[in-house]
């Protein structure tokens, strides 16, 4: 098998779906030589207490993340726009789970 020969295994991000109907959520990260082994290590590290029914692993270096420097232009403009939140409706009596 070929691949990185630096001796350091690549980092993988692990996403676990708790149960049917929910979405995968980030559980943590781990080192593994390849995707198949990453999946198995994820099973052992993050689902040993019955936390999941499905696992995704993603190479960490394939994730593009917003940087803390961009925090203001990215997120500040949304802070003063309360009309974007559905909070101006009267909830009719008898409607549950809202």
């Amino acid at each position: 098998m070929s691949g990185d020969t630096s001796g350091e295994w690549p980092l993988w991000e692990v996403f676990v779906r708790g149960r049917r109907g929910l979405s995968h959520t980030h559980a943590g990260s781990l080192h593994a030589p390849d995707a198949e082994m990453a999946l198995r290590s994820a099973r052992d590290l993050y689902t040993r207490r019955s936390e999941g029914v499905s696992i995704w692993v993603v190479p960490s270096d394939r994730i593009t993340a917003s940087s803390p420097d961009e925090k203001d232009p990215f997120f500040e403009p949304a802070a003063d726009k309360p009309y974007r939140h559905p909070t101006f409706y009267e909830i009719p009596e008898g409607v549950r789970h809202l």
């Binding site: 198995r40 052992d44 040993r48």
Partner: peptide
Amino acid sequence: PVLEEEVALAN
């Protein structure tokens, strides 16, 4: 050799 494998073997 690595922490991940330690957990796997312990499991």
